[in-house]
């Protein structure tokens, strides 16, 4: 397959399949979770319905609690660098905004290419550091399974291929761009089926836990 056909393939059928898998997976998981039987809580609510606590927990769990701060704060910062860099690269780059507009009709002004490349570079560096941490921390290593490493790879590949395409590294531009879009397609397709689904479930899981805790009067 030459560069042009890889690019056409990635922008054509593979994208549509990836989109279908993304939507199917998200619908499957959300409906599957929301349609589950909820355990009946017979206890007296101590602080209203707990909705406020649910919302509060979505925010409060975004930062380590004071007790753990000294031990984990630096890794939280690295993780933030990765996430913010990733978001800037996805949401700030005009070719990506074009894709979002094509899918949703929404659009916003983009950022200069240099800013995007800087954010993507930082994000890739942070992702590498996080992998190193995962591999060297005995606890994390034991907690990690195939999903963690595979999801890492799927998050890392679009960053690297995107930077290669931007800087014209890797020879044939069409091939590199095609591989970048292909990597994005695979990330799309895998998102609902692995741990990357946290981008969507994060708010629900934190909110549900926060609401349950709040109802019982636990401090959030």
């Amino acid at each position: 397959m030459n560069g042009a056909s890889v690019l056409d393939f990635a922008r054509g059928p593979v994208f549509e399949i990836a989109l279908a898998m993304l939507i199917f997976g998200i619908a499957w998981r959300l409906v599957g979770i929301f349609a589950l039987r909820r355990p009946v809580d017979y206890s007296e609510p101590r602080a209203g319905t707990g909705w406020g606590s649910g919302l509060r927990m979505i925010v409060s769990r975004s930062w380590p609690r004071r007790e753990f701060r000294e031990r984990v704060l630096h890794w939280d910062i690295v993780s933030y660098i990765f996430h913010v860099g990733y978001a800037v690269a996805i949401l700030g780059y005009v070719p990506h905004i074009m894709l979002i507009r094509n899918l949703t009709g929404l659009q916003w002004p983009g950022l200069p290419g240099g800013v995007i490349a800087f954010a993507a570079g930082l994000s890739a560096g942070a992702l590498l550091a996080l992998l190193g941490h995962r591999l060297t921390s005995p606890v994390l290593r034991r907690l990690s399974n195939f999903d963690d490493y595979f999801s890492w790879l799927l998050a890392f590949t679009p960053l690297v291929t995107g930077l290669m395409a931007y800087y014209g590294i890797g020879g044939n531009y069409q091939m590199v761009l095609g591989l970048h879009i292909l990597a994005g397609d695979i990330l799309f397709a895998w998102l609902p089926f692995g741990k990357i689904m946290h981008v969507i479930l994060l708010a629900f899981s934190r909110g549900t836990t926060g609401a349950a805790y709040g109802r019982r009067g636990a401090p959030i």
């Binding site: 054509g12 989109l19 279908a20 939507i23 409906v31 894709l99 507009r101």
Partner: peptide, 27 residues
């Protein structure tokens, strides 16, 4: 734009098919 899909299949078909299948699988 070069970064947008070529529109290989009908978008409405892809989206509605995937939503319907996903909801059915979830239920």
């Amino acid at each position: 734009a070069l970064s947008t899909p070529t529109g290989h299949w009908s978008r409405t078909g892809v989206v509605s098919g995937a939503v319907a299948a996903g909801v059915a699988a979830g239920l």
